[in-house]
Write a protein that binds this DNA or RNA. Structure first.
Length: 452
RNA sequence: GUGGCUGUAGCUCAAUUGGUUAGAGCACCAGACUGUGGCUCUGGGGGUUGCGGGUUCAAUUCCCGUCAGUCACCCCA
C-alpha cells in the first residue's frame, strides 16, 4: 500500500508552495542580516531530556518523540531555545557580546493540527545574548516589525502588542496580589480578551482576590499609554523604576521608527514561564489569526538550561500564520518558481541538433534554457505550438532557431493586440565563444544570467 | 484528549422523497485555424462518491464505525 497523503499536520511543498516559503525565508534573512544577525543551526533531533529537564514530563505528550535504534529517548525539536542555549553556553566565554544570532529551524510538535498550527513548521528565531539594556529589547522588536514591512505589511495590517513582566509584577504587587497568586492572574490576563469578564472574575475570585483587586486586574488591559500608566500607578513608589524602564523601551522604539506599530497591552504575558522582562506579540490587525510572532526577555533561562548567567532575549516567528496572512492579502501570489530565461524554438529549416547546441551554449553561459523535450516534435511541431509551451512555462526570452546558422532572439512578453516585433538576429556559432556570445545577447537586449 | 460541522475529477461545485452508464466549469493532454503566440473551436484522459460495514430490489443520498479536514475547548510556537 502506497500512502497517497503526507502525514497529518505535515506539508508537501509543490514548486509554487516552495516559492512562497522561499520568499518568506528571503525576507527573514534579508532583515536579520540588515541588523547584522548571523545564522546558525543545530540538530533537528535531540535527546528527550533536553526538553523534559526543565519543563517536566508533562510536555512529552506534546513532543514528537520516540526511541531510536540505540535505545535512546529522542525527540524532534519542538523549539530552538534549548539548543540555542546549549550552543551559546558551550562558548559563552569566547563569544563577543552581545551575541546576535538567528536561525530558521523546522520544528515539530505532536498535537492535533488546526489552521495556522501544524505538526511541523519553520520558525525564525532571533536572539540577543549578553545585553541587559532595554535598547536590545527595542532593537529585537524592530527586527520583527521590519520583517512585516519587508513582506509588504503595514501598521494597518499588523499590530505589535508590548508589555513587560517586571512592570506587571510590580503593578500586581501594588494592587496587593501575593506572589502565590500571580500565576493564576497571568492565566486570566492571557485570555482576558477571549473570554467573558464574568468568567475572568470567577477565576480571579477562586484565586483568592477580593472584589477591589479583581476590578483593578480587569482594568489593566485598558492601560494603553504611558499617561494611563502614570495616572494609575505613577504615584506608587515601588512602581516608579519599572515604569521608567518601560518608558525608555518605548522611547527607543519611537526613535527606531516603530511607534506606529506599537500598542501597549498588559494582557500580553506569553504562556511560557521563562520570560522575565519585556514581552511582545505581533497580531494581524483584525485579530482573526493566531499570533504571527512572539518573544521577549528571558534573563534567567540560559542559567537554567546552560549554566551560564547571561541576560538574553529573543522571538520566534512561524511561517504558517504569516503565510496564511500573506496569502489572504494576495502578497505572495505572483511568485513563479524558476521560470526559464530562454525557450529555444525549432523551425522547419533547422535540425534538432542545432536547437540542442544552442540550448547547451546558453546553459554554459549561465542561462536557464528549455526546449520541447521530444525529438519528433522538435522536427515537426509548429513554432506557434512551441511558443505556447514557452508561455506556459513563463519563459522570458525566445530563441527561434531559423536554420542551422542563425537564430532570432526576442522577448516573449508582448503587449496584447500588437503584432510581435522582429527580434535581433544572432549567429549561433557566436554563442560558443563566451565573450562574443554575451556581446551578441547584450545587443539583443538580454540581461546577464540570473544569479541564484 | 473532548464536542460540533464537512468529505463527489488536480481545483470550485452539481446530481428530484433513495432510482438508468455520477455531470459542468477551470486545469491538463492532443488536434484545427496548413509552421512566430495569449482568442476561438474540436476531441481526449481522468472518480472504488475518503475508507469499511449495515439497511434496501436499488445508496453519492439513510445508519454505524473509521480516517482525514475544519471550528470551539485544552494546550501552546
Amino acid at each position: 500500500m502506497q500512502p497517497r497523503q503526507s502525514l497529518p499536520g505535515f506539508r508537501d511543498f509543490y514548486p509554487e508552495d516552495l516559492a512562497r516559503r522561499t520568499a518568506i525565508f528571503r525576507a527573514w534573512r534579508s532583515v536579520a542580516r540588515r541588523y547584522s544577525f548571523v545564522e546558525y543551526d543545530g540538530p533537528p533531533l535531540e535527546p528527550l531530556e533536553l526538553y523534559t529537564a526543565k519543563s517536566g514530563d508533562e510536555i512529552v505528550g506534546q513532543l514528537f518523540n520516540f526511541t531510536d535504534k540505540g535505545d535512546r529517548a529522542v525527540s524532534l525539536r519542538p523549539e530552538m531555545t534549548p539548543t540555542f542555549a546549549r550552543m551559546v553556553a558551550a562558548r559563552a566565554n569566547a563569544l563577543p557580546k552581545p551575541v546576535r544570532w538567528y536561525s530558521i529551524p523546522q520544528l515539530f510538535r505532536y498535537e492535533r493540527a488546526t489552521k495556522g498550527r501544524l505538526r511541523e513548521h519553520f520558525q525564525l528565531n532571533v536572539d540577543i545574548v549578553g545585553e541587559p539594556s532595554e535598547l536590545a529589547d527595542a532593537e529585537l522588536l524592530c527586527v520583527a516589525i521590519d520583517i512585516m514591512r519587508e513582506v509588504g505589511l503595514g501598521p494597518d495590517d499588523v499590530r505589535a502588542k508590548v508589555s513587560d513582566r517586571r512592570l506587571l509584577n510590580v503593578l500586581l504587587a501594588a494592587i496587593g496580589i501575593a506572589e502565590g497568586q500571580q500565576g493564576a492572574v497571568y492565566a486570566v490576563l492571557d485570555k482576558i480578551a477571549r473570554q467573558p469578564h464574568e468568567i475572568s472574575r470567577e477565576k480571579l475570585e477562586e484565586a483568592g482576590l477580593v472584589p477591589h483587586q479583581i476590578d483593578r486586574v480587569i482594568a489593566l488591559p485598558d492601560i494603553s499609554s504611558m499617561d494611563d500608566l502614570d495616572r494609575d500607578f505613577g504615584h506608587v513608589e515601588s512602581c516608579k523604576s519599572a515604569i521608567a524602564t518601560f518608558g525608555r523601551y518605548l522611547s527607543h522604539l519611537r526613535a527606531l521608527g516603530a511607534e506606529a506599530w506599537i500598542d501597549i497591552d498588559l494582557s500580553i504575558v506569553r504562556g511560557l514561564a521563562y520570560y522575565t522582562g519585556t514581552v511582545f506579540e505581533l497580531f494581524d490587525a483584525k485579530g482573526e489569526l493566531r499570533a504571527i510572532c512572539g518573544g521577549g526577555r528571558y534573563d534567567t533561562l540560559l542559567n537554567q538550561l546552560g549554566g551560564v548567567d547571561l541576560p538574553a532575549l529573543g522571538f520566534g516567528m512561524g511561517d504558517v500564520v504569516l503565510g496564511v496572512l500573506l496569502k489572504e492579502r494576495g502578497l505572495l501570489e505572483d511568485l513563479v518558481a524558476d521560470a526559464p530565461e530562454f525557450w529555444v524554438v525549432s523551425t522547419e529549416k533547422c535540425e534538432p541538433a542545432s536547437v540542442l547546441r544552442a540550448a547547451a551554449a546558453l546553459r554554459r553561459m549561465g542561462y536557464s534554457a528549455e526546449y520541447v523535450l521530444n525529438e519528433e516534435k522538435l522536427r515537426t511541431q509548429k513554432s506557434s505550438a512551441q511558443i505556447k509551451a514557452a508561455e506556459r512555462a513563463g519563459a522570458a526570452w525566445l530563441m527561434i532557431v531559423r536554420d542551422d546558422e542563425r537564430a532570432e532572439v526576442r522577448p516573449l512578453a508582448r503587449t496584447p493586440g500588437e503584432p510581435a516585433r522582429d527580434g535581433a538576429e544572432i549567429l549561433l556559432h557566436e554563442l560558443h565563444d563566451a565573450e562574443r556570445g554575451f556581446a551578441a545577447l547584450e545587443e539583443a537586449g538580454v540581461p546577464a544570467p540570473r544569479e541564484d
